[in-house]
Amino acid sequence: MRSRRWLALLPVVLGLGSCVQLDWTRESYEEPMPKDAVQRIPIGADASVVFDVLGAPSGVWELAEGAVVLAYANRGGVEFGISGSLSLDDSPVAPSMAWGDEKIRIPGLVVELDSGFRVRDVRRGTARDASPPRRRPVPVE
């Protein structure tokens, strides 16, 4: 009797899948940076110290007067979300909802080198607030 009740519920569960979804995702993109990276890169050190501590940068940009920016970033965390939508017959209204608990972070670290390839600044944060300076504008003749 009980198994029949469960079987009767099956179409309801299958039907729910078309409008409700639960997602659970873990993402890991690139190696995380050492926690003490900033302490291990003294101002004035040669760029080789940076490469020993952090490896190859994700990006390299040119600054004015021969200076260079090295940018490092990685991404990782867990994301959990529920989303649902419902289409009503003969109605332009299609209500939907989504709730998510996103704990994915993008730690970033930016190192500025002077023209002699020595460290002049190190900044750490999330990628949002540690964005590298813009490229040098193209000179107008």
Partner: peptide
Amino acid sequence: VLILFNMAHRDTRSDRVWVF
């Protein structure tokens, strides 16, 4: 990937070399 519930793990790593 189930009907109501989906879960996944995505892992990416790189080899990268910069020569100056």
